[in-house]
Every structure is written in C-alpha cells, then in structure tokens.
C-alpha cells in the first residue's frame, strides 16, 4: 500500500477492555474479590434510531464484604455494638478507601446542581434526572444493614485509565501515552460490555510550524467538535 499524502503512521495500539478486565484490575489493586455490575446509561431519545447510540456512560456498582473494608472492632459495650451494627461509627481500612477514592465520583457531586454547564455535559453523557440524583445521594461508600454489605458507585473509565499507567516511567502514575476510549460495545449482559481503547505513543495533536506564536494566541476559541 502506498499513500498519496506524505504522511507517516502514528504508533497507536488498540486494546479491547472487557468489564471482566475492569473488575479484575480493581480486585488486583484491592487484594480481595469484588462483586460488581455495570449498566449503560445512554442519552438516546425515544425517537432516535436504535443504532444511534449517541454518547453513553457506563456506571459500575460494586459491593464489598464488611471484613474486607472495615477495621474489625469487638466492643464489649452493648450500645457500641448496636451503633456498629447499624453501620454508624464504622472505621474503614484507610488503604482500601485510598485506592477506591481514585475510582469514585467526587465527594461534592451535589455541587453540580449549581453548575448549568456541568449539568449539560453530564446530560450529554446520559447522566441526568434520577440517575444524577442517585449519584448525588450516594457519592461515598454506603452500608446496607439488612444485607450487611457495603457498596459504592465507581467510574469504570477511571479504572481503565489506571490500567494504562506506565510502570517504567520516571514519575509515578504516568500514563503510557495518550489514552482514548473510542468505542463502547454494550450488551444485555453486564459481563460482555466492552470498551475500545486507543493508546497513542509519543506526542499527538502537536501544532506544526514555528512562527513564535501559539495557535491559541491567534484563535481565541477551540474548534468546536
């Protein structure tokens, strides 16, 4: 094959990441088994064609056994035991929470109510109405006393980005390149949700030429996409 344009190929790798890969990576980070499921929140209106997915967001729910995430306390005091059984006064394992925090929604999620632009951006992704309310209600870890389990909502895209950290880089938490999640294949079964991820090596999107000014100095706005 010979291309008419004098262009060189950018080194880019394609990685299909499944929901199982995401859960496995989370389990590797935490060191214990996690029970999780995924749902696709699409922003498609009812009158749109079924194949027009628009942009969709995948939400991940995870549940944990109390012994995995809390510090065991065996109080002799009846009242204290009662308080602990209701989920209050629980001490979480600091390391576990530190790891989970990276993948959780912002603690101050409710603030977006006063940020119309952010609300619009989230709505475009399929996060609006009851879905948004649920995230604002439960941005943290929560306890379900009847089932005696802990749960939280997680951001699978954050877990995917974490998978692409270059462990040979000179500084910690450096990405192996520019990571783009370009494709989402969803299905009826949460386990078969699949993301298509591009990993670009080297510099991408650099402006060409050297006039002593940056492109942004001349164009005040970015090209709308």
């Amino acid at each position: 094959m010979n291309l008419k344009g004098n262009i060189s190929k950018l080194p880019v790798d394609f990685y299909p990441i499944t929901a199982t890969d995401v859960v496995r990576h989370l389990e590797d980070q935490l060191g214990f088994r996690v029970h999780a499921d995924f749902s696709v929140w699409d922003n498609r209106s009812p009158w749109e064609k079924p194949d027009n997915r628009g942009s969709s967001y995948v939400i991940m729910r995870a549940i944990f056994r109390p012994q995995d995430i809390t510090i065991p306390t065996q109080s002799q005091n009846y009242m204290e035991r009662l308080v602990q059984a209701s989920g209050a006064g629980i001490q979480y394992q600091k390391d576990v929470i530190e790891i989970l925090k990276k993948f959780m929604f912002p603690q101050d999620m409710a603030r977006v109510q006063n940020m119309p632009e952010e609300l619009q951006r989230l709505a475009k992704m399929g996060i609006y109405g009851e879905r948004l309310k649920e995230l604002m209600r439960r941005p943290n870890m929560f306890y379900e006393p009847i089932k005696d389990h802990y749960g939280c909502y997680l951001r699978p895209e954050r877990i995917i980005y974490d998978m692409f950290i270059d462990t040979d880089a000179a500084t910690p938490n450096t990405m192996a390149g520019k990571v783009d999640i370009v494709k989402l294949e969803d299905s009826d079964q949460a386990e078969t949700i699949k993301w298509g991820v591009l990993l670009w090596h080297g510099t991408v999107g650099q402006s060409i030429g050297n006039y002593g000014v940056t492109i942004d100095d001349v164009f005040q706005q970015q090209i709308p996409r």
């Binding site: 590797d28 980070q29 935490l30 060191g31 214990f32 390391d95 530190e98 790891i99 950290i165 462990t167 040979d168 880089a169 000179a170 500084t171 910690p172 938490n173 450096t174």
Partner: peptide, 25 residues
C-alpha cells in the same frame, strides 16, 4: 528515577502486599 516512580506506584499497596498481586513486577 525508577526507584522514586516505583515507590509512588506501589505506595497505596504497601500494607497489602500479602493480598495484592503485582503483575507488572
């Protein structure tokens, strides 16, 4: 540089080495 980066990358797991795998190592 590699040493400092590695310390940063495994910092959160250091108290859980008896539980977590470290595939990249």
């Amino acid at each position: 540089k590699r040493m400092h980066a590695l310390i940063g990358n495994v910092q959160l797991q250091k108290n859980r080495f008896n539980q977590v795998p470290m595939h990249f190592i």
